[in-house]
């Protein structure tokens, strides 16, 4: 069973238990949580920020 199938089964079970449409379930990784946290911090503090890239 690959990673996608495992996650799909888990999502299906959660949807059934929570009585919600499985299409509404979003899979968020801890990595994504950190990225969102950084973006939220930047937005909430009104910081002008652009990650330095090679073309800079």
């Amino acid at each position: 069973m690959d990673k996608k199938n495992i996650i799909a089964i888990a999502a299906a079970v959660i949807a059934e238990e929570e009585n919600i449409d499985v299409q509404e379930i979003r899979i968020i990784s801890c990595h994504a949580l950190s990225a969102d946290s950084l973006q939220n911090y930047i937005a909430s503090h009104g910081i002008e920020y652009k990650k330095y890239q090679l073309e800079d």
């Binding site: 990595h31 950190s34 990225a35 946290s37 950084l38 911090y41 990650k51």
Partner: peptide, 17 residues
């Protein structure tokens, strides 16, 4: 920033593991 936020700022987007 927090430790993980700093990692997100350091590395290219969506590459930190």
């Amino acid at each position: 920033l927090t430790a993980r936020e700093r990692m997100e700022a350091l590395f290219d987007d969506d590459t930190f593991v």
